[in-house]
């Protein structure tokens, strides 16, 4: 059963009713409730459609963080073959919050990387809720070096609350690690397609998202700071997170308008977590389209275009 968000209460109630009716009719063949079920089902679809068509930025934040939203491992399993995970930064450790490796995408050899949040308590702890330490970003640099050497396109999937704020992370140069990863990404002589899958949390997201193309799922968010963090600093109370979410302009729709994102990947009715397979099919198509657009562009030109893309953002 899926986790319902607070604004989905009427939908949850309807789905409960539908389930009950199905159970009833299943036990007794003399009762035909299929008309009633169909009626409720279409009402449920209508409500869901309405709710998701008009999601507020704060509601989108909740959807983007939904625990059942497809994660990096789901993306890899659905869209890639021959996935060969690579581990370690070769200087300190292995960070499971940022995963990556070699793989085939539609038959083509690529380098794939992304943040993994985990799906249950033990795996969330193992992946540190998708919050990387410096080792993660240094591993990213190592993998990008590899991609550059062998001419492999780099596909990244961003889904992180942000880089991990901890003593050890600071001790080992969290900022330097993030800066170097962004720099490496910008220097690549291969196509880079970055997709914000769920949360694009601040510098920890930028480190993997300095791509030639930046795509976003329909209900993904990308922000300089979490709405809660912004509210607690500027409003002096995290209760104002809803207002902060609106003011910060964090939705995919806003970011396309601002020229930060290039395209939006549509999600199935009720969000990617309701029909992950359909969502991932759409993701695969969008990434393939973005890659195809860069076919045959030489390394220097790819680098130049990427630089120009970022320099153009926000200019008058």
């Amino acid at each position: 059963m899926i986790t319902f968000l607070d604004f989905e209460k009427p939908i949850a109630e309807l789905e409960g009713k539908i389930r009950d009716l199905r159970k009833l009719s299943g036990g007794d063949s003399s009762m035909d409730l299929s008309d009633e079920v169909d009626r409720l089902q279409s009402k449920r679809d209508r409500l869901l459609g309405e709710a998701y068509a008009g999601l507020s930025p704060w509601q989108k934040t909740q959807v983007a963080r939904h625990p059942e939203r497809p994660h990096f491992s789901d993306i890899v399993a659905h869209l890639f073959t021959d996935f060969t995970p690579l581990a370690g930064d070769r200087s300190f450790g292995e960070d499971q919050a940022l995963m990556g490796g070699l793989a085939r995408f539609n038959g083509r050899s690529v380098l794939v990387m992304g943040n993994e949040k985990g799906t249950d308590t033990p795996s969330r702890i193992k992946h540190n809720f998708g919050m990387s330490r410096p080792e993660g970003y240094r591993k990213a640099v190592r993998l990008m070096d590899l991609a550059d050497r062998f001419g492999l396109p780099v596909l990244t999937f961003v889904d992180t609350p942000g880089a991990y704020p901890g003593i050890g992370a600071e001790e080992r140069g969290q900022s330097e690690a993030i800066a170097k990863s962004t720099e490496r990404c910008l220097r690549l002589g291969v196509p880079v397609v970055a997709t914000i899958v769920g949360e694009g949390g601040s510098g920890g997201a930028v480190a993997l998202a300095a791509g030639n193309r930046v795509l976003m799922f329909e209900h993904a968010i990308y922000s300089v700071i979490s709405p809660e963090g912004c509210a607690s600093i500027l409003w002096r109370t995290s209760d104002k997170a809803k207002d902060a979410a609106t003011a910060l302009k964090i939705t995919a729709q806003d970011l396309v308008k601002l020229g930060v994102a290039d395209g939006i990947i549509p999600e199935p009715l009720g969000g990617a977590h309701r029909e992950p397979k359909r969502a991932l099919d759409a993701l695969g198509e969008a990434v393939q389209d973005a890659l195809s657009e860069m076919d045959g562009i030489p390394a220097d030109r790819l680098r130049q275009l990427r630089r120009e893309r970022f320099l153009a953002i926000g200019r008058l």
């Binding site: 922000s223 500027l234 302009k249 970011l255 926000g314």
Partner: peptide, 20 residues
């Protein structure tokens, strides 16, 4: 923060500048 994502985009933008 008041410039939202555009302030975040200064990270890659300044990185490009330094790299040049």
């Amino acid at each position: 923060m008041q410039e939202g994502i555009l302030s975040l985009m200064q990270m890659p933008r300044t990185t490009v500048a330094v790299d040049m």
